[in-house]
Amino acid sequence: MDTEALWLTARLALLTTVILFVIAVPLAAWLAFSTRRWTSAIEAVVALPLVLPPTVLGYYLLVALGNQSPVGRMWQDWTGSSLAFTFTGLLIASVLYSLPFAVQPMLAAFSGVDRSLIEASSVLGRSWISTVLRVVMPLSTAGLATAIVLTFAHTVGEFGVVLMVGGNIPGETRTLSIDVYDSVQAFDYAAAGRTSLFLLTFSFVVLLTTYMIRRRRVPWVHA
């Protein structure tokens, strides 16, 4: 198995998970508790990567990150390198692509927190941020754990977007799923089989963990 691809995949998944956790917590909290009219629109945008073909998302990202776009040019001027076909570009793509896998479990968990606890917290003088940190998150540990596990696993498994935005540069954008594709293209079925078995086992263990978290009866989680 290509250890360089394994290491790169792990690094990508880990960074994506960390970044998404930081983004998704406030986003999910806002979606769970805001009463504004356009929350549904934001929810739909967040869920888009679930239904959009990865190639479509990849295409838009490629255009947005490329040297012809303002973002791509700004990045180029600032760092001297391009975003497309680099690890950083791949990371941005992964964050967007895995967004629903982080937000949705959190949203479900946050919405399940007893409303009067949140009201109690604000009457007791706590700000919105403090309430999320001290009441909402501690009461949503199962949802948060599910979000982390799913984000990590989904990033490990992504293929279409990686191919579109990252291409296949060893050590830079070549992930395990690309490695399988590459091996098959080169008729190296043995290598493809090994990597595939690894990914299959990994995915099964991750899903098993998720369902075990969900089934665990936490005594202080209210219905």
Binding site: D114, S116, L117, E119, A120, S121, S122, V123, L124, G125, R126, S127, V135, L139, W220, V221, H222
Partner: peptide, 16 residues
């Protein structure tokens, strides 16, 4: 949160 009031809820609403 800035009204400096206490509120006793029907179902106590203690943080579990």
């Amino acid at each position: 949160r800035r009204r400096e009031i206490g509120y006793l809820f029907q179902d106590h609403a203690l943080f579990p």
